[in-house]
Design a protein around this nucleic acid. Structure first.
Length: 606
RNA sequence: GAGCCAGUGGCCUAGUUUGGAUAAGGCGGCAGCCUCCUAAGCUGCAGAUCGGGAGUUCGAAUCUUCCCUGGCUCGCCA
């Protein structure tokens, strides 16, 4: 297809070149036109073909406005001249002038064959790139004082989708999770448990159990501010290795980890490597000290800081006056450690937009330290998630818990499945409800541009209608259903044939020679859209924006559904039926490829 | 106060990076479609000063600028 575009553009260039050599206007750039400078000038115009919105306007379009000024002629006249100078040949069947536009029509059977054959050939690889990078992706990053909530779910789903996407396109992705397992917030839940927990064992999911004490602490601390100091004291004891405190920390963290791993399992999220803040929080000090010696960093009343004014950023303190480290200290260490240990092409962080400045500063500091790979670091920033009544507040227990949300949506899927299929085994219901429920949740969180804040709508988030994963999965189920009936039909026909039936034989579709000119308007549209999958994947990967892909999948499914309703596939003439089956199998392949890039499974039947 | 991000029908969003033909979907509302391949679906109707002004351009939701509104950030917190 690009070949056709190039050919068309080449011919337009030829026309332009001829025109320009006749112009000797000193005001124009080409007054002293030599063939070389003319070509250079044409290149600088950056002429491109567009794809018209409507099929009736052709396959490619060239707006002539862009040449009107250069040639000092009306766009319409230019269009007429170009059309005269062009040769219509091979896949180009027609060129039409519509106002200032030149509309090119390409032989549909040529386009159809090219696209459908490519899908049939590449199958699950269709549309995918052949990248070969080694990339570390950090996401999730929970605190160990409370269970995972909706905010974490958006992070997990995004991180997981981006990782999956990059993996499927050939990259090696190392999924890592940095656990914030120490610090004042952890001590808060520890202190509350110590005071009021009576040394009890968890009587509910163990991370929720710990979270309860965090909320309890915050409540009590409002009445009694001294508790804050007590927690600080506990943190110091933890840092100095107080046996009792460390034992409590270990005990409660274990509860949280157990809870987390259950939650991750429920969400089908996994990591290759875990980093623990408790193990690295003191590291990075040497890097900072060395930086000071080399005059990269500066000192102010004993504290070491990075002056980032050259980067147009506020200064950042890297080590306290008392010599203790800060969050950024370990971040510097970890950024370097990740690169060193893993020989990465790139290192990405999936972290909320509230930390935009933090990462700008971190990356600037890495640059100051003269690491050549500094520009390989990327903060994949995403928007906040708000509840209908505002921001989530863990302190007040005002959150949507990850477990509740996942369970609820899977339960709802179960309910819907049982409504439709009374005879399905429990195991099958289990599997299918997870595919549909999780798919719906993932899709809901991915379909919005990741930089945008999401105002969480509880009803919409668990909906299976409209712009949702089940809508798309349902399309696949329909195709499967038709294909199944088609296969039975063939079997039947073959049987009858052996009985010397007069019925025509329909060969298996993949062995059939398809007539690519047989397709109607909707079918041509569908195939064209299938052909755009490559570009969508490319853009999605390039911009790391899953929402581009979700939008495409919705558009494709919608067009398919329209087609499904207007066309009775299994009642068409044999050669038409074959072509249609061939088409819908391709549609299914592309939808499936797209969903899988986002780690969304699809049940065969719904 | 400064920096960053956003503002598109009642609600949620796509389109903005790369300016082009009538601003595209979903939810909700109304009116229809299952003796027909799964109605988790489809069709139709109503509903938009693309936050506002100015500018650039043959052409602006898209670029520039000013203003308004909302969010995030600006710790020797994480």
């Amino acid at each position: 297809m690009d070949k056709i575009k190039t050919t068309i553009l080449q011919q337009i260039n030829n026309y332009l070149e001829k025109q320009l050599t006749h112009i000797h206007d000193p005001a124009t750039l080409v007054s002293d036109a030599t063939p070389h400078s003319t070509k250079k000038f044409i290149n600088s115009l950056n002429l491109t073909l567009e794809t018209p919105k409507e099929q009736t306007l052709g396959d490619y379009a060239f707006p002539c406005f862009q040449l009107a000024k250069v040639l000092k002629k009306s766009p319409n006249l230019i269009a007429q001249e170009i059309i005269k100078s062009m040769q219509i040949e091979r896949p180009i069947t027609k060129i039409e002038i519509k106002g200032a536009y030149l509309n090119f029509f390409i032989d549909k059977s040529y386009l159809n064959e090219k696209i459908l054959k490519e899908i049939a050939k590449k199958k699950e690889k269709f549309g995918l790139l052949k990248q070969k990078k080694r990339i570390m992706l950090e996401y999730s990053s929970p605190n160990t004082n409370k269970p995972l909530h909706l905010g974490h779910v958006r992070n997990c789903v995004l991180g997981d989708a981006i990782a999956t996407m990059l993996e499927k396109n050939g990259n090696k992705i190392i999924r890592v999770c940095l656990v914030n397992d120490r610090g004042i917030h952890i001590c808060k839940s520890m202190l509350a448990y110590k005071k009021w927990g009576n040394n009890a064992q968890p009587d509910c999911k163990s991370d929720f159990f710990v979270g309860k004490y965090y909320v309890l602490f915050c409540k009590e601390a409002e009445k009694n501010p001294e508790l804050e100091q007590e927690a600080q004291k506990m943190l110091q004891e933890w840092e100095s290795g107080n046996k009792e405190v460390v034992a409590l920390w270990k005990k409660m963290n274990k509860w949280v980890y157990n809870g987390f791993s259950e939650s991750y399992k429920k969400m089908d999220i996994h990591f290759h490597k875990m980093y623990y803040e408790s193990k690295i929080y003191k590291k990075g000090k040497n890097i900072v000290k060395k930086g000071l010696k080399k005059d990269i960093f500066k000192e102010d009343n004993g504290a070491i800081y990075a002056d980032l004014s050259l980067f147009n950023l506020p200064k950042k303190v890297l080590m306290r006056a008392d010599g203790t480290s800060l969050y950024i200290t370990q971040d510097i260490f970890l950024a370097i450690e990740k690169m060193k240990q893993n020989k990465l092409h790139a290192s990405y962080y999936v972290v909320g937009s509230e930390q935009n400045l933090h990462f700008q500063q971190l990356f600037a500091i890495i640059k100051q330290l003269k690491y050549k790979w500094a520009d390989k670091l990327k903060h994949i920033s995403y928007g906040m998630v708000y509840l209908p009544d505002g921001k989530m507040k863990s302190r007040e227990g005002k959150v949507v818990d990850a477990d509740d949300l996942v369970e609820e949506i899977i339960e709802l899927a179960k309910y819907e499945i049982k409504l439709r299929h009374k005879d399905l085994s429990d195991k099958a219901v289990e599997k299918r409800s997870k595919q549909i429920g999780l798919g719906a949740l993932r899709f809901y969180l991915l379909k919005t541009d990741l930089t945008k804040d999401i105002y969480f709508d509880p009803k919409e988030s668990i909906s299976f209608e409209g712009e949702t994963a089940p809508y798309i999965q349902y399309g696949i189920a329909r195709i499967n259903s038709i294909k199944k009936k088609y296969d039975e039909l063939i079997k039947e026909v073959n049987k009858n044939k052996s009985k010397k039936s007069k019925k025509k034989l329909i060969k298996h579709v993949t062995n059939t020679k398809i007539d690519f000119a047989i397709y109607n308007e909707t079918e041509n549209k569908l195939i064209k859209l299938l052909g755009e999958f490559n570009k969508v994947v490319e853009d999605t990967i390039k911009q790391l924006k899953p929402s581009l892909l979700t939008r495409y999948l919705l558009d494709l499914t919608q067009l398919f559904n329209m087609y499904y309703h207007e066309t009775q596939i299994l009642q068409s003439a044999p050669n038409v039926m074959d072509a249609r089956i061939y088409l819908i199998i391709s549609v299914k392949q592309v939808i499936k490829n797209g969903l899988e890039l986002l780690h969304i499974e699809s049940p065969g039947e719904m």
